[in-house]
Design a protein around this nucleic acid. Structure first.
Lengths: 130, 130
DNA sequence: GTACAATATGGAGTTGGCTCCAAGTCAAGA
DNA sequence: TCTTGACTTGGAGCCAACTCCATATTGTAC
């Protein structure tokens, strides 16, 4: 698979893909004789890992650290588990913040729907709405 | 309430709070005769709004746009509703990405727990794990 | 009233994550 | 073979969101 195919598959740019490789968020990708990247299934799996985690806000650095540990082999199983657990915990917190914000927005939206109907914006929870 | 109190209450720095005010993510805060910020309940409600949305990843610009519309008065009810709805939708997408990533991490973590026990890292979904 | 901490302002600096650019190489169709 | 478009690299540039700094002013404890 060429870099372009991978870009389309994951909805990212070639620059981003090269950047991920440069900083180690994915392992070095195999090349043709001419030096052109050729993504095999394993490479795609790494790209998927990076893209999925990045979309959730995991830092490129953390992803790269995981790749680094992975490439060091079986000695780093515990370290990788710890890294993944830490990131998982942080995503759990983020999930909570996100849920809070969604709740806030949903409440405001419901008030605004009423306001657009009636012409008056009111708050029934806390008299100080905005 | 002083800026320091507000910082502690919301777990952010005074610089951030002043920055939010400067760029309009919260409305201008009232001052003492000497020019020192004094946060009343309404100001706190605005700070809460900004902090909550920022933690979920809503841009400072979008928050500031909402404040701007709010300050323009009742003519902008629909515009505000539309803005909030758009942000709500974007958070919904983000929630999905986050959930995907949590699922991925949970799966990997379960595999790593087994690996730390048995000494061998294996993948039962897709043979290409990482 | 005097020290000293807290706050004010404007503006520069930092960080993370891309994104773009120049100059060159590679490869597929006419 | 020639052309044209995709790909390569290294490095510079950009943007959002802070974060830090210098300098000045305010407010509080003694």
């Amino acid at each position: 698979m060429t870099i372009k195919d991978v870009c389309e598959k994951f909805g990212i740019t070639a620059d981003t893909l090269r950047y991920y490789e440069k900083v180690g968020a994915i392992p070095k990708v195999g090349r043709s004789q001419g030096g052109i990247r050729e993504y095999d299934d394993e490479a795609l799996s790494w790209v998927n890992n990076a893209v999925c985690l990045r979309k959730a806000g995991v830092s490129v650095e953390a992803i790269a650290e995981y790749v680094r540990l992975f490439n060091m082999g079986g000695e780093t199983l515990e370290a990788r588990l710890e890294l993944l657990s830490k990131e998982r915990e942080s995503l759990g917190k983020q999930l909570e913040e996100l849920t809070n914000a969604v709740e806030l927005l949903d409440y405001k939206i419901s008030r605004y729907r009423k306001a657009v109907e009636t012409g008056v914006l009111t708050w029934d929870r806390d008299p100080l709405g905005n």
